[in-house]
Each structure stands twice: as C-alpha cells, then as structure tokens.
Design a protein around this nucleic acid. Structure first.
Length: 270
DNA sequence: GCTTACACCTGAACGC
DNA sequence: TGCGTTCAGGTGTAAG
C-alpha cells in the first residue's frame, strides 16, 4: 500500500475536491472489497456534505454532515482516481460531487476496505481500538518503544510492523528507518537499547515526513489522486536495492522476515 | 499471551 | 506469442 505517507498524500489530494462539497451521486460496482461494502453506503453518501477529511494510521476518513464518517483503507493496491476518462473494471466505488468531479476508488487486488462509522463511535471502530500511537504525533517516544518492545523476542523489524505498537508503519518505511538508525532488522525488539531507540524515533519521523513532502512513493500500483506519481522512491536507501552499494561502502542485502522482504546493510546496521 | 504461517486477489515481470 | 511461476505496499485469523 500505500503506506502512511501515501494515505496522507491521498487525503490532501482528495480534500481539494471533497471538503465542503456535496456528494451528488454514489455507486458501488461490486458488493465488496476485502469485506462487503456497508449495505447503506450509497444511501448515506448520496446527498451528504463532506465536512473535512482526516487520517488515522493508514486509514483515510471522509467526515460527513450526518454524524458519520466513511473510513477507507487502500490495502495493497488501492488509490483514488480523480475525473478518470472512463470507469475501469477496478473502480469499485464511484462518487460524483456537486461540482461535477468524479472520484473513483480503484483497487485491483481488493485488499482495501470501506466502512461507515458513527462519529461518536470512532474510537470503538475495531481497527482503531487497539492501535498504537501515530508515528508523527507526540506519543511516539523512545520510552514508548522501550515499553512496547520489553520482553519481545520478535525481530524489531517485525515488531515495528505491528500496528498495536506503532500505527501506520509499513514494510518500506520500516526498512528505511532501521537503516537510518543503524539497527539490525533481525535484532530482537526487546534487545534494542534506549540510545538506539532515541535514534529510531527521529529516523521514523524523518523518513515519513520526507516521503510526504515528496508526495509519497511511486510503487507500481500507487499514484497520487491527481494521477501523478510520488517521487520518494528515488530516495530509498535500502528498499528494493539488493546488491547495490550502501552509502557506507557496504552492500544492501535482502532476506525474508515474516514472509516480507527486508532490505538492510550489515556494515552500518548493528 | 506470544509468535508464526497463511489466506485473501490481481497484475506485472520474468523465464522458458 | 503464450504459458507458468514468482512477487508485491497489509491485515486478520488460525495454529502451534
């Protein structure tokens, strides 16, 4: 997916077309993504006014003037298309605004999801209920990670992907942040020292902020809502660079952890 | 309770 | 050209 920076970029892009706008028409082109669409989705969206948009972890929230929010997750291949020339086979949810813009939620692999949640019950929305602190917020601190990792024998790279410990981190940015902090990805999470965690927290923030500033990564399936590709991919230091030199003079290696590719440099990550 | 493996689905890339 | 295999950003669930 679309990891946190891509969702943030998407939300900012969508806001320009949706905030303050009325959804004149809505339709779904199939019954489900990962889960079924809410049965009343079209009814609730049609005629609703969008008050604002926000993001929690990798979820995008479209807040309506009906005390409800539509929450979308882009899964691994989801993206919003703005004013597409034609509706494609993977445009599963299509909105038309009062201003005449067409917004299509496109998700070839259908790992994404769409939910409707009462504004008053957002904290009880299951994926939000047990989620960790936002990595760009004040609650992600070295001390939080120390507590969250205490006693864990799971590799630190796998632990960072656990949304209960930190919200919104995905495979790419975890690889990049661990590299910047000089931490071995296969080190047991509980064995990472506080000084190392004090390097890791700013590394996470930096890699995310730089990616957001660059408009997200240009993964194969990802594009900003306006169709442009993000440019952060060109800034990756280890991800997808197996066999290529590291800036320290070492070589980027790849191995599999928990079924996912991990990229790292054994010379500068200890 | 913690950790690991796997399923979910499609399309691109690659080798033969 | 066509076919088969492998791999990919995530998350939830079941098994150990």
């Amino acid at each position: 997916m679309p990891e946190l920076p891509e969702v943030e970029t998407t939300i900012r892009g969508l806001a320009g077309f949706l905030e303050g706008e009325t959804i004149a028409r809505a339709r779904v082109n199939r019954p489900d993504l990962r889960r079924p669409f809410p049965p009343d989705l079209v009814q609730v969206l049609t005629g609703a006014k969008v008050t604002h948009l926000s993001r929690r972890a990798k979820y995008g929230l479209i807040h309506l003037d009906r005390q409800q929010a539509m929450i979308f997750h882009l899964g691994m291949s989801g993206r919003w298309r703005i004013d597409p020339e034609e509706i494609g086979k993977h445009d599963h949810l299509v909105l038309e605004t009062g201003a005449g813009h067409v917004l299509a939620l496109n998700d070839a692999r259908r790992f994404g999801s769409v939910d409707l949640v009462d504004e008053a019950a957002l904290d009880q929305f299951a994926p939000f209920a047990a989620i960790g602190p936002e990595p760009l917020g004040p609650d992600l601190t070295p001390q939080h990670l120390k507590r969250a990792f205490a006693g864990k024998i799971t590799a630190v790279k796998v632990a960072l992907l656990d949304q209960r410990l930190v919200a919104g981190l995905g495979n790419i940015y975890v690889c990049e942040a661990l590299h910047r902090a000089g931490i071995r990805p296969d080190k047991p999470a509980g064995a990472v020292s506080l000084p190392k965690l004090k390097l890791l927290v700013p590394a996470i923030r930096d890699v995310l902020n730089e990616s957001i500033a660059a408009g997200g990564s240009s993964m194969r399936d990802y594009a900003k809502p306006d169709g442009e590709l993000g440019y952060f991919a060109t800034s990756w230091r280890v991800y997808g660079r197996e066999g290529q030199p590291c800036h320290c003079g070492g070589t980027v290696e790849r191995f599999v952890q928990g079924g996912r590719s991990t990229f790292w440099c054994r010379k500068c990550q200890k």
